[in-house]
Design a protein around this nucleic acid. Structure first.
Length: 182
DNA sequence: TAAGTGATCTCT
DNA sequence: GAGATCACTTAA
């Protein structure tokens, strides 16, 4: 993996690894968002809550029934945002991971002091205009190294939220990771 | 605890 | 085209 220093965007190859590994390593990284309004200020938030959606066999993964116009981005190269509207109300933010043609993504559920995937996107003004943007370089939305090492004992793993209907064993896999900073 | 909300997908 | 589904949030 390419070495990146504090403040640099994570390289595309950071995301080109096994889904759970990328999810684990994303905890504590900075989610960076260039606001669209006046001033174009950059907001930086540490990633605290993530969920892995891992490939065609994962029944909770949008791509488990094959490629559709919506989820096609997941079949593409890693390091790109996958943004979609949930329940007609909330934009949900994911990043595509793993090799091309392997549909996997990491859902960003919380960052900084914002908890909840729909709240996060609302707070940052993220919507479909961010879909397909690169996360591995300074676009309107990207992820930066910040030099933090998140220790295992500050990470909690739980089943993913809101996917009970997919049945076992996928509904109970501990693919949700939450960082509780000391 | 239940409703709001609308794109997306799977059938006709 | 119609109907079911849905990785959520809020107010009650």
């Amino acid at each position: 993996m390419t070495r990146v220093s504090k403040g640099d965007p994570l390289g595309a190859d950071f995301f080109d690894r096994p889904t759970l590994e990328v999810t684990r390593d994303l905890l504590g990284k900075n989610l960076c968002c260039r606001s669209a309004g006046q001033g174009r200020k950059i907001i930086r938030l540490r990633l605290t809550e993530l969920e892995a959606y891992d490939g065609p066999d994962d029944k909770a993964c949008h791509a488990h029934r094959g490629k559709t116009p919506r989820n096609a981005i997941m079949f593409g190269p890693p390091g790109y945002w996958y943004v979609y509207l949930c329940y007609g109300v909330h934009w949900l933010l994911n990043i595509v991971v793993g090799p091309e043609d392997y549909p996997a993504a990491v859902l960003i559920r919380g960052a900084g002091d914002i908890e909840g995937p729909g709240r996060l996107t609302r707070a940052l003004g993220i919507d479909k205009s961010h879909n397909h943007l690169p996360a591995h370089k300074k676009s309107g939305l990207w992820i930066e190294e910040n030099g933090l090492a998140v220790p295992e004992n500050e990470i909690t793993r739980t089943p993913r939220i809101g996917i009970d209907s997919v049945g076992q064993p996928w509904a109970k896999k501990p693919y949700r990771m939450v960082w509780h900073p000391e």
